[in-house]
Amino acid sequence: MTVTCRFILFRVAPAAALAVLVGPAGAHKDPVTPQQLSTYQQVFMEQVRKGDLLFHGDAATEKEMAVVLSNTGMACAMCHPMTADTHPATFPKYQVQMAKFATLRDMINWCIEKPNQGEKIADDSEAMKALEAYIYWSQSGTVLNPGKF
């Protein structure tokens, strides 16, 4: 028997068996409470709410978040009621208008800059995360279909 085989037989195998019996140390955590679930959901829905307001051109929310998403009076929802035809589930994909492989965030910024003639927002900005939260939440029953034209 080689040294490697002995090592596996006498050291690794018992440890693995023990791990199966007690479960991995990293997975051991306190059970989630209804209060925690409620908090997590509230954090998420607050982003959805903000994103919904931005998507619908709410001036107060734009001011509060220091963004200018449109200079034409147009809001995202005017072409995309209930986020229709935003197709978030198809990203990332080759986006014809930009002639590049693009993410949903790229597309949001393209719409802000082109049809809306507004000011581009940072990819990791609070406004971008809120818009993304709203769009995904609104389409949460849609099947993922990345890459689809």
């Binding site: 959805v48 709410r49 619908h56 949460s140 029953g141 849609t142 099947v143 279909n145």
Partner: peptide, 13 residues
């Protein structure tokens, strides 16, 4: 490309 859509929420808050 099928989409399943929800009505907006913020205008009811």
């Amino acid at each position: 490309i099928p989409e399943v859509l929800r009505p907006r929420v913020a205008d009811n808050m």
